[in-house]
Amino acid sequence: MSSKKNKKLTPVQQKYQSFAKAREPKPSVLRNCMRAFVSGGAICTFGQFLQWVFMTYFDFNEITAGNPTVAVLIIISVLLTGFGAYDHIAQWAGAGTIIPVTGFANTVASASIEHRSEGFVLGVGGNMFKLAGSVIAYGVFSAFVVAIIKITIQSLGGI
């Protein structure tokens, strides 16, 4: 019963698992997709609105407006996390609130708040990237791989 990669369940375990599976409610994929579409879409539309505000009323163009837009979204989601509202919204919205930049801000903020009781160095500093760390590590690595592919294609006379 240990966790070897080639772990095999005994017939009794297999029988029980299908017995239990038949009695467990399944997450509604369709409903979750719809909610994610609506909530994720709403966040993106709001981001688009912010970008328009920065371009119309401030001295930003389409490219430079990206930074202040993201900053505002991050501040809002960190505040919602701090006030204890974000996790309730996310239980409803699912992937809709995790995938946009708001989800990333929430992982960092929630971990920081959670470990405040262990102090600023070992607690907040040490745990801030507990959840976000793997996103950063693999995000940077994926960007690196994509960049290598792009450079290779370009040097071979591609696009």
Partner: peptide
């Protein structure tokens, strides 16, 4: 929650189980 799962304010969706 802190010890076994995620930070309390972390926005992950919990399954129906």
């Amino acid at each position: 929650e802190k010890q076994f799962r995620y930070p309390t304010e972390y926005g992950s969706q919990k399954p129906p189980t």
